[in-house]
Each structure stands twice: as structure tokens, then as C-alpha cells.
């Protein structure tokens, strides 16, 4: 192939790929903005869990189904914990004597187990959406 042509192709490819990446980004962000408008950074319901002696209090927390939930987790232990739930698809570190917030839902009615990854033998709980 003529080197000049190869160079041109190469530049054209760069331009094409840059445009593809740009338009996908714009599409994703636009989609997010459109669907998230009004819903983002806002929750219908607040709920709180406390970690004490590597256990969750309450171990069973009732929340309304179909609502977006702002869940606060207060760690009253001096040691760090990781709040984790496969069913809720959430994981977040809570430092000793710290508080975290995770956004959850809207959930379908059901039971959603969660646990403290660092103390799994005691730190077990379940969120019940009704």
C-alpha cells in the first residue's frame, strides 16, 4: 500500500473511532439525564441500620416495596465493616464509628439478605420489602 494512503486511512480511522466514542458517550449521558431527571439524588423513604458488636440492629428491617430507599448504616463499633448484599447488588465500606448511605430500590416485594463482609459469622441481616 502507498504509505501516504495508509497515513490517510489511519487518520480517518482515528476520526471515525473518536466520533463513535463521542456519540456513544453522548447517548449514554443523554439517556441517563432523560431517565434520571427527577429521580436522581432523591429517595422516597429513609431507613437506618446500626452495627453494634459486629451485628446489625435490627437484623430484619421492613421497607416499603416499590419505593426508592435511602439506607443509612451507622457503625457503632470501632472497627471497619463492609456492608454487602448480593441480592441488592450493593457493597460499601463503613469505617469504625462512621456512617454511610446507600441508595436501594425500588424493590419488588421479597426478602433481601445482607451481611457484614468482615464479620460474616455474626453480621447477618435481611431487608424485607412489603
Amino acid at each position: 500500500m502507498d504509505p501516504a494512503v495508509g497515513h490517510l486511512n489511519s487518520e480517518m480511522r482515528t476520526i471515525i473511532i473518536c466520533n463513535v466514542i463521542k456519540s456513544s458517550l453522548i447517548a449514554v449521558l443523554g439517556c441517563a439525564a432523560a431517565l434520571g431527571a427527577g429521580g436522581v439524588r432523591a429517595a422516597d423513604v429513609q431507613a437506618t441500620l446500626v452495627i453494634r458488636d459486629h451485628k446489625f440492629e435490627p437484623a430484619e428491617l421492613a421497607v416499603p416495596a416499590g419505593a426508592k430507599i435511602k439506607l443509612s448504616i451507622e457503625n457503632h463499633d470501632a472497627t471497619p465493616e463492609e456492608f454487602e448484599s448480593h441480592e441488592l447488588n450493593r457493597e460499601k465500606i463503613v469505617v469504625g464509628n462512621g456512617t454511610i448511605t446507600v441508595f436501594i430500590g425500588p424493590l419488588e416485594p421479597g426478602r433481601y439478605p445482607f451481611f457484614g463482609d468482615f464479620h460474616q459469622e455474626t453480621a447477618q441481616g435481611v431487608l424485607v420489602a412489603k
Binding site: 441517563a32 439524588r41 446507600v102
Partner: peptide
Amino acid sequence: QADLLPALGNR
């Protein structure tokens, strides 16, 4: 999880 993006369906 941080509520910066909508889930577009949780599951």
C-alpha cells in the same frame, strides 16, 4: 449505588 445514575431497572 451513589444515586448519580439511574438504575434503568434494578434487576
